[in-house]
Computed example of a mutant assay.
Amino acid sequence: MARKIIKKRGKKVGAAPGTLVHIGEKSSMGANIRVIDYDQEHLTDTRIHAPDMCGSYRDSHSVSWINIDGVHQTEVIENLGKSFGLHPLVMEDILNTDQRPKVESYEDYLYIVIKMLLYDEVRHETRTEQVSLILGRHFVLSFQEFSGDVFEGVRERLRSGRRIRFMGTDYLAYALLDAIVDHYFILLEKFGDQVEILEEELIADPTPATLAKIHHFKREMLLLRKAVWPLREVLSSLTREENPQISAETRLFLRDVYDHTIHVIDTVETLRDLLAGMLDIYLSSISNRMNEIMKVLTIMATIFIPLTFIAGVYGMNFEHMPELAWPWAYPAVLLLMLGVAGGLLVFFRRKNWL
Rank of each mutant, 00 (worst) to 15 (best):
K213F: 02
I164Y: 02
Y330P: 06
I265R: 09
H138G: 00
T298G: 11
S132N: 14
R137G: 01
I281T: 12
V113N: 02
N288M: 06
E233Y: 02
V122N: 11
I94G: 13
K82P: 09
Q40H: 14
L336D: 03
W353S: 01
E249A: 12
A212D: 14
G148F: 09
N67L: 04
P327Q: 13
V131N: 07
A248R: 15
H215R: 14
E189P: 00
H216T: 08
H216L: 08
D108Q: 13
D93L: 10
T302D: 11
S83N: 15
I6L: 12
A329T: 00
Y314A: 06
V333I: 15
G30Q: 12
T261S: 03
G168E: 02
L20W: 13
D93H: 14
G315E: 07
G70W: 07
T74E: 13
D273H: 04
L110R: 10
Y314M: 08
H260K: 08
V195E: 06
R47A: 06
M300A: 15
M91L: 12
Y258G: 05
Q99S: 07
E200W: 03
L86I: 02
I114E: 05
L86E: 12
R9D: 07
L135F: 01
R123H: 14
D37Y: 06
K226H: 13
P322R: 10
L279W: 04
E78C: 06
T128D: 10
H22G: 05
T210V: 10
N291I: 07
A204K: 13
E189A: 13
I281H: 09
S236D: 12
D170R: 00
V340R: 03
S60T: 15
R165H: 02
V90D: 09
D178I: 01
F151R: 04
F139C: 02
T261P: 02
P327G: 05
F253A: 05
E152Q: 09
R165G: 05
F166W: 06
R251W: 11
M91F: 03
L86S: 06
L176V: 05
L202E: 05
Q73E: 15
D256K: 02
K8P: 00
E156H: 10
S83K: 15
K102P: 07
N352Y: 01
D37E: 14
G30T: 13
F309M: 11
V234C: 01
A175S: 15
V131Q: 04
L187D: 07
G10E: 15
D193W: 03
G192F: 00
V140M: 05
V296Q: 01
S236E: 09
V131D: 01
A212E: 15
P331R: 07
E199C: 03
R100L: 10
H320Q: 11
F151D: 00
Q130N: 10
M221F: 01
L133E: 02
N243P: 00
H183Y: 11
L223A: 09
E75W: 06
L275M: 08
Q130P: 08
V234G: 04
D178Y: 00
G148Q: 01
E129C: 01
D273V: 02
V131W: 05
I310D: 07
D205P: 00
L135M: 06
L324N: 12
T126W: 00
P17C: 11
W326A: 12
T126S: 14
L254C: 06
T267M: 13
N291R: 05
T239F: 05
A276S: 15
I262R: 05
D205A: 13
A15F: 08
